[in-house]
């Protein structure tokens, strides 16, 4: 076990625990946007920053990636930390003025939009948290979407912004998206996502449309379970 201090509170946690988890386990709240339990972390959004003091040196680190260390002193709400968090939220408010998630989070932390930043019109609600790209790669395993360009032009898209041949329409990306940026439209027989329309499969037993055919084919191929056995929805299985 490693012993350290967060916001004046003596805490111990197993080696390898991240500061974020150690704090949350002890009732200390740290806001996050890009850390999702299902996928690996990148430290991209920078909302979860805290100050870590080791001896004389105090530096700002992302709590989601910073492993606990013996004797370290963490502050999660001092002025330096809040200054970063406020800036991050102001910047995201300007990038995604339509996002309720960002607006609510900003309101919670008392952050108002910065009038000096002209609101973006072309970024929709995407904050580039990378959860969608990671879930598609790490959990689904198809890497249908990815990043393009860099800097302010960086975006999540299918290659060449065209229909992805490998997308299975599973919707994991839309599900994990914290701001509701990824649009998925599911009607009875079809599902539309990333510009492509997928045919839904009706359950062999109850007749309810429950999953895209491409997704079932993909699961069958990956697991070796015959497609027929997958043609029944979870309720009827």
């Amino acid at each position: 076990m490693v012993n350290f201090i967060i916001d004046g509170k003596k805490i111990s946690a197993a080696k390898g625990t991240m500061v974020l988890e150690a704090a949350r386990a002890n009732g200390i709240d740290i806001p996050t946007l890009c850390a999702h339990e299902a996928v690996s972390r990148s430290g991209a959004c920078r909302l979860c920053v805290v100050e870590a003091k080791k001896g004389k040196r105090a530096k700002i680190v992302t709590s989601c990636l910073y492993p606990v260390e013996e004797g370290i002193i963490i502050e999660t709400k001092n002025e330096r930390v809040l200054n970063v968090r406020r800036l991050v939220l102001q910047l995201l408010l300007a990038r995604c003025p339509e996002s309720d998630v960002i607006r609510d989070l900003a309101a919670q932390l008392g952050v108002a939009p910065q009038p000096r930043f002209a609101a973006d019109k072309d970024k929709s609600k995407c904050i580039l948290c990378r959860s969608c790209v990671r879930v598609c790669e790490e959990i689904v395993g198809v890497s249908a979407i990815g990043f393009s360009c860099r800097g302010a032009d960086k975006a999540v898209s299918t290659p060449f912004n065209e229909d992805s041949a490998v997308c299975i329409g599973c919707g994991a990306c839309a599900f994990i998206c914290p701001t509701g940026h990824i649009e998925m439209e599911t009607t009875e027989e079809t599902r539309k996502i990333w510009g492509r329309t997928f045919k839904m499969k009706a359950c062999d037993v109850c007749g309810r449309y429950f999953a895209p055919e491409d997704q079932l084919k993909y699961i069958s191929k990956k697991t070796g379970v015959p497609l027929k056995e997958l043609a029944v929805c979870t309720n009827c299985r």
């Binding site: 790669e137 890497s143 979407i145 990815g146 393009s148 290659p159 490998v166």
Partner: peptide, 10 residues
């Protein structure tokens, strides 16, 4: 994956 190649190319 082609998405990764597109990422590098852009």
């Amino acid at each position: 994956p082609i998405s990764r190649i597109y990422e590098v190319a852009t």
